[in-house]
Nucleic acid binder design. Structure first.
Lengths: 188, 188
DNA sequence: GACAAACGATACAGATCTGTTTACTTCATT
DNA sequence: AATGAAGTAAACAGATCTGTATCGTTTGTC
């Protein structure tokens, strides 16, 4: 494993542990143990645990947005359907074994200081998600794409929060139904 | 201060610290220091820190639901308006200096095991909130109160999550506007 | 093959965490 | 006034946390 690969592996292991157990509850020692990489090496790549958390969030952001984009484009061609297809992506996430609520909301909850880099990284992800929704709404030539994007965003966040506590993946479909009502399209 | 008052005070201090800093980040020692109550006394009232967390969440649940109910009833008499008035309550929360995101979502994020009492207490609160929305929808004689309640719930959760990261209390008004569209009422 | 950088393993420092123990004090009730 | 429960303060135990230091080994590069 080369240097860059080790760094990648550390981030992946950390990301999984943070998502599953939370950011304070998952310690550096556990990342070490599960990655099989020495602590010295971890601290050569990351100045602190917070740095590692930020890196994990950035990776999570990349993965989420790439996967959502791919899934949406595969599933629907019509721009308006693509807005609704984002909820199908949500549903597959809720159904998966790696759903423990939104990692970014969790991070913001544990590092609530707005000046903290962890909080800011989470805020950045949410801005990028909103921008993606707006891009889809614009492609669909909807009258007020910014406003539509905000509505979709509320439904995403709401469904994710509710699904986390109810452990019911159907929340995604319900949110989709509301969304379809809001953007004035058939429920598919 | 009598015994029961000490217990109450401990819960209040703990609740404030947990909400502000998170459940792992706020230690028992800090609760001790800020409450001015001895550690021995704390552990006479609560078997463990998790017990204290559960008690704090239960208090939070009572306060939130009572305050929301009171605010809603004061603000609006018409049942349909009362559904919308719940968003005004949200807005006052977002504006207040004690808003650090939803304490229950934070707790569920840090104690993600569904068998954990902390998680379950959070889930209970969300069920009770949903039940309240349904009660309001039923009073408004809306066609499908359960479904209306779920829609309101998504918007509440969504607005809370977004407001937490954007630090923008206007999110409550936007969510309210969506809600009014969904239940077919004027935006007031 | 030599050299420097990176890695692994482990011990360690120092802080912090939850929870307990001890010994002394306060206070309400009978 | 006596008694017993409850509170205070502080030390302590033991675990765990982040981060560093040590030192021997591997590895990539000139």
């Amino acid at each position: 494993m080369k240097r860059a690969e080790k760094r990648d592996h550390l981030i992946d292991v950390a990301r999984e542990l943070f998502n599953r157990h939370g950011y304070h509850a998952a310690g550096v020692d556990r990342v070490i143990a599960e990655s099989g990489i020495a602590k010295t090496t971890l601290y050569r790549h990351f100045r602190s645990k917070e740095d590692l958390i930020v890196a994990a969030l950035r990776r999570e952001d990349e993965l989420v947005r790439e996967n959502m984009r791919r899934a949406v484009e595969e599933r629907a061609a019509d721009p308006r359907d693509r807005l609704l297809a984002t909820f199908d992506f949500l549903e597959s996430w809720f159904t998966s074994s790696s759903f423990f609520g939104c990692p970014f909301m969790g991070a913001a909850g544990e590092y609530g200081d707005p000046k903290n880099a962890v909080f800011q990284e989470s805020a950045m992800h949410k801005r990028l998600m909103l921008a993606y929704f707006e891009e889809l709404a614009r492609a669909a030539q909807l009258e007020n794409p910014k406003w539509i994007a905000e509505q979709i965003n509320y439904l995403h966040e709401g469904a994710t929060a509710v699904a986390h506590l109810t452990r019911d993946a159907n929340e995604a479909r319900k949110a989709k139904e509301i969304a379809s009502k809001l953007i004035g399209a058939a429920t598919e």
